[in-house]
Design a protein around this nucleic acid. Sequence first.
DNA 1: TAGTATACGGAGGCTCCCTCCACTTAGCAA
DNA 2: TTGCTAAGTGGAGGGAGCCTCCGTATACTA
Lengths: 192, 192
Amino acid sequence: MTIQESARTSEERPQRADARRNHELLLVAARELFEEGADPSMEAIAKRAGVGIGTLYRHFPKRIDVVEAVYRDDVEQVATVAERAVLELDPWEAVDVFMHAFVSYALGKRRFLNELREAFEKNPELKSASRERLDGAVRLVVETAQRAGVVRTDLTSEEIYGLVGSMCMSASLTAEQCERLIDLILDGLRVR
Amino acid sequence: MTIQESARTSEERPQRADARRNHELLLVAARELFEEGADPSMEAIAKRAGVGIGTLYRHFPKRIDVVEAVYRDDVEQVATVAERAVLELDPWEAVDVFMHAFVSYALGKRRFLNELREAFEKNPELKSASRERLDGAVRLVVETAQRAGVVRTDLTSEEIYGLVGSMCMSASLTAEQCERLIDLILDGLRVR
DNA sequence: TAGTATACGGAGGCTCCCTCCACTTAGCAA
DNA sequence: TTGCTAAGTGGAGGGAGCCTCCGTATACTA
C-alpha cells in the first residue's frame, strides 16, 4: 500500500446514508430467510430486502459473505444479551434469560449448518473469534451467578457451554426437546 | 405391488452388457474426480467416463446418488482389504496393511465431506451401514492380531477405530502428518 | 444549486442440475 | 443369419442460481 493510499484509507468518507440503510435491510432479510428454511437464493434475499441484486452484491461480494455477516451478527446479539442481562437483572435471572437466548440462537444455526461449516473452512478466524466471544458471554453470566452463590460451583462455565452447545447441535433432539431440556439443566445448576 | 409385478420383478432380465460396463465406468470416473479435487460437475463425470450426460442420469438419477454409490464402493473396498489381509497375510502384516488402507480411504473422504454429510442426512441408513461395515473390518483385523498375541489387548477395536478415524478427520492435520502418525500408532499397538 | 463521488438496479453471461426424446444396439427367437 | 424389440444411449435445452457490468440515480459537499 502506498502512502497516498493509506492516507486516503484513514480519512475515507463515511458510508452514504442509503448504503448504511440497505446494508441493515439486507442483513435483516437474510437472517429471516435463513431462519425460515433452507438455502435462500441471492435473488430472494435482495427481493426480501427490497433492493436490487446489484446492491446485494455491492455489500456482500459472495454468497458466503452473507452467511458470515449474519452469523457474526447473531453471535454479537447473543453476547449482548449476556452483557445486558448481567447489568440489568439479578444473577439467577440473568442465567435463565441468557441460556434461553443461547439455545434459541443455537437452534437457529441448525438451519444453515452446512453453509456455516463452509464459512468456517474458508475463514477459520470466524470460528475462533465467535467461539471466544460466546465463551466469554457464558463465563460472564455463569461466574457472576456463581459469585452470588446462586449457581453451583463444581462446574466450570466451559463445561456448561459444552453441555448446552452439544445438546443444541444433536441431530436426534428436536427444538422442542431442547427447550424443555434447558429448563432441566437450569434446574440442576441452581443453588437454592 | 400386484402379483404380476412382483413376478416380473423376480424374473427380470439381467442388465445389458453395455449398461453394466457404463455403470462401472461412471463409478470409476466419479471416484477419480472426487479424489482429484472439489465438486466435479455431472457433465465432467460423464465426459471422463466417456458417456453422455443422459447415460449418467439413467444410472444415477441425482447427483447425490453418485456420491452415495462412490462412498458405498469405497467402504466395500476397504472392508475387502481387511478380509483378504486376514486370510492372506500374517496377523501383524494384516493390521499394518489394513490400517494404511484405512487411512488412505479416510483421507480421500476429506475431499467431499460436505457432499457426504448431505448424503448421510438424506439417507441415514447409509451412515449406519457403513459405520457397521467398517467397524466389523477393524474388529476382524485387530482381534485376529490380538488373539495371535501381536497387538496389545488393553485396547478395544472400537477405541482404535475411534482414534484413527478422528485423526483422519482432524482439519488441523495434513495428510502427510496422518500418514506418519499412523506408523506411530501402529508402533504403539504392537506387542514384540 | 451545481457538481461529483458514491450507490443503485437489473439485464444478461455463465455454469449447474436435470429432463426429454429421437436414435442406437444388445440379446433373443425363428 | 436375420429381424424384432426392450433396453440403453446421448445431447439439446429448460430452469435456476451465482455473479458482473454499466447506465442511471442520488446523497453529500462547497
